[in-house]
Each structure stands twice: as structure tokens, then as C-alpha cells.
């Protein structure tokens, strides 16, 4: 029996979320193609969820109704003056990400919102 501690449930949830948006899972495909060499993808599974949010809206956390209500309760504008209020800034970021080769090298499909590997 292994004495290694089990990862925390919340961490497993985060990892699974990353795997869910990955088209080709090397661990599964290695069973079908045992001679294929595995490689380290640019974006690790554990960070894919937050990277996807960053790619889509320019920030790591979404602003939903609950957040808007919390902000209003603290005397702030419902929407922060971040990329959440400036769609143009997010559009520019996506142009930079594209031009810098981030989407391509990270294997990110902009239309589907998934990673190849």
C-alpha cells in the first residue's frame, strides 16, 4: 500500500477540468499506440482551465451575477474597469496571442475552446 498522500479533491477537480478540454489525452492514446513517444505539452492540464479563461476574456476569473452583487454591496461599480468592461482590450490581447504564436504552440483551438494535447 502506498504511503503517498492522495491529492485533495478540489485539485483533482481542477485537473479533470483541464483534461476535459484536451482533445488528445496521451495517457489514453498510449494504450492504443504504445510505441508513440509522449511529450510535455506547452500547457499543463492543471493550468488549462485558467489559461482558457485568460484566452477568452483576458482575465483568470469570470465576473458573474454573484460577483457583481458582491461588488455593489461593497459600494463599487457592478463591473470592474478591467477587460470585463473593455471588449476591445480583450480583442487586442487575442491578436497578440495569435501573433506571438501562443495559440498555435499551445495547441489551442479558439473556436472550440480546447487544447489539442
Amino acid at each position: 500500500m502506498s504511503s503517498e498522500p492522495q491529492p485533495l479533491k478540489s485539485w483533482i477537480k481542477l485537473l479533470e477540468a483541464g483534461k476535459k478540454i484536451t482533445t488528445h489525452r496521451q495517457s489514453d492514446e498510449n494504450i492504443v499506440y504504445p510505441l508513440r513517444r509522449t511529450f510535455r505539452p506547452a500547457a499543463p492540464d492543471i493550468a488549462k482551465g485558467s489559461l482558457k479563461r485568460d484566452f477568452e476574456q483576458g482575465l483568470v476569473y469570470y465576473v458573474g451575477d454573484e460577483v457583481e452583487n458582491d461588488r455593489a454591496a461593497c459600494g463599487l461599480s457592478r463591473l470592474p474597469p478591467t477587460g470585463r468592461s473593455y471588449a476591445d482590450a480583450v480583442a487586442k490581447k487575442r491578436v497578440i496571442l495569435e501573433d506571438a504564436g501562443v495559440f498555435k504552440k499551445a495547441g489551442y483551438d479558439k473556436k472550440k475552446g480546447t487544447f489539442d494535447y
Binding site: L59, V60, Y61, Y62, V63, V67, D70, R71, A73, C74, G75, L76, P80, T82, R84
Partner: peptide, 12 residues
Amino acid sequence: CVMPVKMPWAEK
């Protein structure tokens, strides 16, 4: 990312 979403009291 964090301040406006999780810490509005600190932002204010």
C-alpha cells in the same frame, strides 16, 4: 484578476 472578483472590500 483576483481583487475585483474575490476582494471587493479590499478594492474599495
